[in-house]
Simulated assay, not measured.
Amino acid sequence: MAAASDTPDGGSTPHSQTLARGIRMLEILAEAEEPMSIAAVSAALGVHRSIAYRILRTLEDHGLVVRDAGGALQLGPRLAALARSVSRDLQAAALPTLTAVANELTMTAFLTVLDRHDVVTLVSVEPSHAHAVLVQRPGTRHPLASGAPGIAIQSVLSEAQWRDLGGEHPRAEAAEARVRGYATSHDEVIPGLASVAVPLTVAGQPVAAIAVVYVASEHDAVAIGARLRAAVSTIARDLD
């Protein structure tokens, strides 16, 4: 049975289960580290393969999902075009600065925004002169409670925003990040990786953070945090 929700006129309207499953399929493919078979996607969705296939065909028709030569599924180019429209001004202002940060620190730099209980990557830039880099794909999401970008965003949320998040509660590290101006994490989102992030708040834009990710080592988090804080100032100034 479809769920119902209140509408402005006091009535209720059913949710579309098919649409919800299609959106969830896109999320599953975005979270996957490699293309997935239809069997794996249907299992992740918890539906029969025939249902997953019908959803897939619709998403393919709109260019949101494509299949490789072996028939495995991955996100399509149309989704990237749609994503560019999300917080367009913020993305445009952040891209040059993220590029400078990535090349200066020789680390992948990225912009994340708060999406309900998750943190989602909008823009990612890899350093141009590095032998090996870590990839942070746009569309990647992880819980607000995990990772440096999530902690950084937590550090600037108001009491009203926390109430809107329901059962979410700030981590102790969020208070520390508020004092020092940046957040750090190690082995949280991906084992073996570390991240440093700085919150970015601009009127009219979603709560955001810029971050870098790198193999956990002896990098100076304080110096990285200072560089990211300068980057945030540049982005905020360009958006004014």
Results as ranks from 00 to 15, higher is better:
residue 67 R to C: 00
residue 211 A to M: 06
residue 152 A to N: 02
residue 180 R to Y: 12
residue 80 A to C: 04
residue 208 A to P: 11
residue 74 Q to W: 02
residue 21 R to A: 06
residue 159 E to F: 00
residue 56 L to W: 05
residue 113 V to M: 13
residue 39 A to F: 06
residue 72 A to W: 11
residue 52 A to V: 02
residue 197 A to T: 04
residue 2 A to T: 05
residue 129 H to V: 15
residue 222 V to W: 08
residue 17 Q to W: 02
residue 157 L to H: 01
residue 33 E to Y: 04
residue 111 L to N: 11
residue 100 A to N: 12
residue 172 A to W: 06
residue 12 S to F: 09
residue 68 D to Q: 02
residue 139 G to F: 07
residue 148 A to D: 09
residue 145 A to K: 08
residue 4 A to L: 10
residue 222 V to P: 03
residue 16 S to W: 03
residue 4 A to H: 13
residue 60 E to Y: 10
residue 69 A to K: 05
residue 77 P to Y: 03
residue 189 V to F: 11
residue 16 S to I: 06
residue 116 R to Q: 15
residue 49 R to N: 02
residue 170 P to Y: 08
residue 199 P to N: 11
residue 240 D to K: 11
residue 206 P to E: 13
residue 163 R to F: 12
residue 173 E to W: 00
residue 110 F to D: 00
residue 7 T to A: 06
residue 232 V to F: 10
residue 232 V to N: 08
residue 86 V to C: 07
residue 1 M to P: 09
residue 30 A to F: 00
residue 175 A to P: 02
residue 234 T to M: 13
residue 8 P to G: 01
residue 158 S to Q: 04
residue 190 I to L: 10
residue 148 A to V: 04
residue 171 R to V: 09
residue 46 G to M: 01
residue 54 R to Y: 03
residue 80 A to I: 01
residue 171 R to H: 10
residue 106 T to D: 15
residue 78 R to M: 04
residue 113 V to I: 15
residue 232 V to A: 14
residue 109 A to W: 13
residue 48 H to F: 04
residue 2 A to D: 14
residue 172 A to F: 07
residue 156 V to H: 01
residue 52 A to S: 02
residue 16 S to H: 01
residue 233 S to C: 13
residue 231 A to N: 11
residue 67 R to D: 02
residue 15 H to A: 12
residue 238 D to V: 14
residue 113 V to H: 08
residue 166 G to C: 04
residue 198 V to K: 04
residue 164 D to G: 02
residue 193 L to D: 04
residue 108 T to F: 14
residue 190 I to Y: 12
residue 210 I to W: 09
residue 106 T to P: 02
residue 5 S to W: 04
residue 46 G to I: 01
residue 67 R to G: 02
residue 114 L to C: 05
residue 57 R to M: 08
residue 3 A to R: 05
residue 62 H to T: 12
residue 232 V to R: 14
residue 126 E to K: 15
residue 116 R to A: 15
residue 65 V to T: 01
residue 52 A to G: 00
residue 232 V to L: 12
residue 194 A to N: 12
residue 102 A to R: 13
residue 135 V to Y: 11
residue 42 S to V: 00
residue 5 S to E: 08
residue 80 A to N: 08
residue 225 G to C: 12
residue 187 D to M: 12
residue 34 E to Q: 10
residue 18 T to L: 03
residue 108 T to C: 13
residue 16 S to A: 03
residue 17 Q to K: 00
residue 181 G to M: 06
residue 154 Q to P: 02
residue 235 I to S: 11
residue 212 V to T: 15
residue 83 A to Y: 05
residue 122 L to C: 13
residue 193 L to A: 08
residue 64 L to D: 03
residue 118 D to R: 15
residue 142 H to A: 08
residue 119 V to H: 11
residue 125 V to G: 11
residue 193 L to H: 14
residue 126 E to M: 15
residue 13 T to L: 10
residue 226 A to N: 14
residue 59 L to M: 06
residue 148 A to W: 09
residue 169 H to A: 12
residue 134 L to P: 04
residue 206 P to W: 09
residue 65 V to R: 06
residue 161 Q to K: 00
residue 184 T to W: 09
residue 46 G to H: 01
residue 39 A to S: 07
residue 13 T to V: 11
residue 53 Y to R: 13
residue 187 D to I: 13
residue 68 D to H: 05
residue 141 R to D: 00
residue 92 A to S: 14
residue 237 R to Q: 15
residue 9 D to F: 06
residue 189 V to R: 09
residue 191 P to L: 03
residue 1 M to R: 09
residue 6 D to M: 11
residue 21 R to Q: 08
residue 76 G to H: 07
residue 3 A to T: 07
residue 189 V to W: 13
residue 139 G to D: 13
residue 145 A to M: 10
residue 54 R to H: 02
